[in-house]
Amino acid sequence: MSGIALSRLAQERKAWRKDHPFGFVAVPTKNPDGTMNLMNWECAIPGKKGTPWEGGLFKLRMLFKDDYPSSPPKCKFEPPLFHPNVYPSGTVCLSILEEDKDWRPAITIKQILLGIQELLNEPNIQDPAQAEAYTIYCQNRVEYEKRVRAQAKKFAPS
């Protein structure tokens, strides 16, 4: 494992614990031996107030490669969400998460999670990743928002 990646992720964890947006979660997972795995984080993004996503808490896994922060983490909703920019596998399609697009090593975990929260309610229809959600979003916004509200209710924190 890269010392650069681990040191950056340790800084990220410290900064997150000191200050993070209300309702968001970002925690490194534990290895079988109980030690912390900084390369694999369990996160959760709350649906934004005043949107059909409100009330939901959407679980996301963030996986970092050894060359982080040169390369972005892979962000994957578990379980996958109904959304035009979420692949059926759950992987998020967002330009700041793509090395050859808008990724920059200075982007923080907090910025990534806030960017994904923004994307939930403002899909990028130029870059669809899920045919069904994309089609319904474009053709029947009322039905799309109904499905999103049902999903938010399903993923409401207990």
Rank of each mutant, 00 (worst) to 15 (best):
F24V: 06
R104K: 11
Y68C: 05
L38T: 09
P123I: 05
L94N: 04
E98R: 07
Q117F: 12
F24D: 12
A156Q: 12
E118L: 11
G3A: 00
G90D: 06
G55M: 12
Y68E: 02
R13D: 03
F22K: 01
D127R: 03
V27E: 04
K101R: 13
I107H: 11
G90F: 02
I116W: 03
P128M: 03
P157L: 08
I109N: 02
D67N: 11
P69L: 03
Q126C: 13
P79N: 15
K154R: 13
A133T: 05
Q130S: 09
K146C: 11
A5S: 13
T35H: 06
P52I: 11
T51P: 03
D66V: 07
T108F: 15
Y137M: 11
S89H: 15
I109Q: 05
P128W: 05
R149C: 05
N121C: 10
E143L: 10
T35S: 14
Q111C: 15
P69Y: 01
F155I: 09
L114S: 12
S2N: 08
K48M: 10
I96G: 06
Q117S: 11
V92F: 04
K74S: 15
L94T: 03
T51W: 02
P21D: 04
Q130Y: 06
R149A: 06
L114C: 13
I107Q: 11
E132L: 09
W16R: 01
R17I: 01
K146A: 14
P52F: 10
K76P: 01
D127G: 09
P88Y: 07
K153C: 09
I109D: 03
L9I: 06
N124Q: 00
E143C: 11
P32L: 14
Q130P: 00
L97K: 01
P157S: 12
Y87R: 01
A15P: 01
E118Y: 11
E98T: 08
T35F: 00
P80W: 13
E42A: 13
S7H: 07
T135L: 12
E145I: 09
Y87E: 04
I112L: 15
A26K: 05
W41N: 08
F58W: 04
G115Q: 03
G115F: 01
K101L: 13
P123S: 03
P73W: 02
P79E: 14
N40F: 07
P72R: 06
S158C: 08
G50Y: 14
N124D: 01
L113H: 03
C93S: 00
R17W: 04
T108E: 13
S71N: 10
D33W: 07
A15I: 10
R104T: 08
D67T: 10
G56K: 06
P157C: 10
K18T: 07
S7Y: 07
F24K: 01
H20W: 01
F22R: 00
D33A: 03
W41T: 01
D100R: 07
S70D: 06
A26F: 13
H83C: 03
K154A: 12
E99P: 12
N31D: 05
L94R: 00
S70Y: 12
P157W: 13
P72F: 00
N124R: 03
L97T: 15
I136S: 12
G23F: 03
Q11G: 08
D66G: 11
R13E: 03
Y134D: 06
I107V: 14
V92I: 07
Q139P: 07
K153D: 15
E78G: 13
N140I: 00
D67R: 08
L57M: 09
L63Q: 14
K59M: 07
G47T: 06
I136C: 09
Y134V: 08
A44K: 15
L63G: 13
V142M: 13
A15W: 08
H20G: 01
K14H: 05
Q139R: 13
N121F: 02
G3Q: 05
F58D: 06
G50N: 15
K30S: 11
C138S: 13
E54T: 10
T51C: 13
L81I: 13
L113M: 11
P84Q: 01
P46H: 07
E122T: 14
N124C: 12
S95K: 04
G115N: 01
I112Q: 13
I112E: 04
L60A: 12
E98P: 11
A150T: 12
P84T: 10
D66K: 09
N40P: 06
R61C: 11
R104A: 10
K30H: 09
